[in-house]
Design a binder for these strands. Structure first.
Lengths: 180, 180
DNA sequence: AGTAGGTGCTTTACGAGTAAAACACCTGCT
DNA sequence: AGCAGGTGTTTTACTCGTAAAGCACCTACT
């Protein structure tokens, strides 16, 4: 009665790994509504496969994905960011940002400048080399993403983007400040 | 011209973090087609938030998510699995499985039995305590997932499941055996 | 002015995953 | 039978992220 997708969707959406996992759970726990798994299991699995695939070109450039995210944040915002800004922007802990920034400055991709007013804070920006690296990598990433999505027609792509946005909106609203 | 979702979708899908990130990239690189980001960025972000949220009840039970995945694989298949099977089933490395199995057997959740034919392989199964733990946790997980999705009506949920399945099918087909 | 409390960042200690090597065992060829 | 090569699992050395403590600095109250 939980109004989920238990409905049926007759023979659709066969042949992905999540479908077989869901069927296994249904066999073992016929009483539970496995509808949500059809969505959330697939989101998780898609994300895992996408990251694995997209990491390859980055590693070729000697970057981890979190490092690329950090450089990307600096590039796309267009202005300097503090470590704290970067932590929020890349959804990672402050400590992780500290270490990544250290590694990236040593490699000459990022520069730091102390704030004159508040001597606790640092301002970070890309060096020319850092900017060039991001600008070289980004088209590669997008080309791969485009090729993955090329199997879906544009209407499906838009539909997927809209539905995911709805889901994400809900997640971000609900999880903005959870109780640990 | 790459037939992506660049079309427009006028004012739709505002107010999630991915939308603002995409707008930033568009401002810096107006030449690139950022359509794929609208999908793939959201998949990644949704997965990150979902995992973070779903980890909480697991940690309360003293389990990490990979550990729960391992126990879940044993539960849903209903029969014994070898470490290799588990590695494939949970998409993790053999070494990681070895360590997790060790920890879980020490906690009395998993039992191992040597193969009589081939003495290299072990067969693993849940203890009663392991089975009970999974069976107690699973409804919690599903209830949370149901509540997250409760904002979407059933038709949207089905649509999302179908579209994600199409994407996942493509990813699994393409990435079954990549070249490192 | 002096100080208590908060903020921004970094350091430390540790846990967890990985890749590569090591190990133990099986299989098929001669 | 004996051994070369393959497979299933574990071990080792290392990397990376995290939580919690630590440090330096700012701010606002008395």
């Amino acid at each position: 009665m939980t109004a989920s997708s238990g409905a049926g969707v007759p023979g659709a959406t066969r042949s992905d790994t999540v479908a077989t996992v869901v069927r296994q759970w249904e066999a073992v726990h016929p009483d539970l509504d496995t509808g949500p798994m059809e969505i959330i299991g697939r989101v998780n699995r898609c994300a895992a496969l996408l990251q694995q695939a997209e990491d390859a070109p980055l590693r070729r450039a000697g970057l981890s994905r979190p490092e690329f995210d950090l450089l990307g944040a600096l590039r796309r915002t267009g202005h300097e960011l503090t470590p704290g800004d970067l932590a929020r922007e890349t959804f990672s802990s402050g400590a992780a940002v500290t270490k990544r920034v250290k590694a990236l400055t040593e490699r000459g991709l990022v520069e730091r400048r102390g704030d004159t007013r508040d001597r606790r804070v640092a301002h970070l920006r890309l060096t020319d080399a850092g900017r060039d690296l991001v600008d070289g990598l980004l088209p590669e990433q997008l080309a791969y993403e485009t090729s993955v999505l090329s199997g879906m027609d544009p209407a499906e792509q838009d539909g997927l983007a809209v539905l995911l946005s709805a889901l994400l909106g809900r997640l971000e609203g609900r999880l903005g400040a959870p109780r640990p």
